[in-house]
């Protein structure tokens, strides 16, 4: 596109796609067949990856970007946006994903980090990025690096919502506190959050993150989706929770309906019926690796 009157890859356009995904469910899929099930069920986007987090956790070893051929197969299978994951700091993987034409890159702690100090310089890309965060400081650092969507990390692949709740409450609780701070206190907040002052000032003024905030990590039921939406998430990512459950298609659809009707318990009780077993869950104390600890 050489038309100089058209500007691509701007913050507005990148954050704009995140706006369009609000109120929706982004589902992890490992092949075109799963991608079609997800789209049929009303997913607002799919995340293309080779193994869902529960399998990555079980298999161990180094988890990397997916095979481009597999990502292209999923792109061709659906009409909704396709996201894919790059390792933290692995800008070469992100460059490949951008050249494949994926709609969003997830610089994800679910994959094995490639850089122990630096995240990707996301300003250098046309494709938008989503990054995980466990607290407000981490969220603002990712935004300062150019992330256009934040997802609370939770603990992927566990089917256990407790970490997602901890991270959401931490981010939203600190946002509330920052809005109560006076001008002088904001300098101290920036120092404590290890985040750029202008972003802290923006949060204080608007009462929200500068980019949309979604929730990920441990969502396995319609009630989980409702819980995190009521806590303030603007959309949900479901990783292992759908395709590691007994009967993925109806569960996927139920989670989509629950995300739309998150504040309507009668509707939630209707969509939660007869879904079969959710994915097997894991106690956090039993984990060898905490994925959420990855990222700096």
């Amino acid at each position: 596109m050489n038309d100089v009157t058209k500007a691509t890859g701007t913050q507005l356009v990148k954050r704009g796609l995140a706006e369009m995904l609000k109120g929706g469910v982004i589902m992890d899929v490992v092949d075109p067949a799963q991608a079609r099930i997800a789209e049929d069920a009303g997913a607002s986007a799919v995340m293309a990856l080779e193994r869902v987090p529960a399998d990555i956790r079980r298999d161990g070893g180094v988890a990397r970007m997916s095979d481009p051929e597999m990502i292209e197969g999923i792109k061709e299978a659906v009409t909704i946006p396709v996201m894919a994951k790059a390792r933290i700091g692995h800008f070469a993987e992100a460059q490949i994903l951008q050249s494949l034409g994926v709609d969003y890159v997830d610089e994800s702690e679910v994959l094995t980090p490639a850089d122990e100090a630096h995240h990707i310089d996301k300003w250098a890309f046309t494709v938008p990025f989503v990054c995980g965060a466990t607290n407000l400081g981490e969220a603002l650092r990712r935004i300062s690096e150019g992330a256009c969507m934040i997802r609370s990390k939770g603990e992927a692949g566990t089917g256990n919502i407790v970490e997602a709740v901890r991270h959401l409450r931490s981010i939203i609780g600190d946002i509330r506190k920052v809005t109560q701070a006076d001008e002088a206190e904001l300098f101290d907040w920036a120092k404590r959050l290890q985040s750029p002052l202008p972003l802290v000032q923006e949060v204080a003024e608007t009462g929200e993150l500068p980019v949309p905030m979604f929730c990920a990590g441990g969502i396995a039921t319609p009630a989980d989706a409702s819980l995190v939406m009521q806590l303030g998430a603007q959309a949900v990512f479901v990783g292992s929770g759908i395709f590691k459950s007994d009967d993925p298609a109806p569960r996927a659809r139920a989670i989509v309906e629950a995300t739309t009707n998150f504040a309507d318990p009668a509707m939630l009780s209707k969509v939660s019926r007869g879904l079969g077993d959710a994915m097997p869950g894991l106690e956090l104390g039993s984990l060898e690796t905490r994925l959420a600890d990855r990222g700096w």
Binding site: T5, K6, V13, G16, L17, G101, D103, V127
Partner: peptide, 9 residues
């Protein structure tokens, strides 16, 4: 796709 999304007056 998204990389072609644009702004224009």
């Amino acid at each position: 796709r998204q990389i072609d999304s644009f702004e224009k007056d």
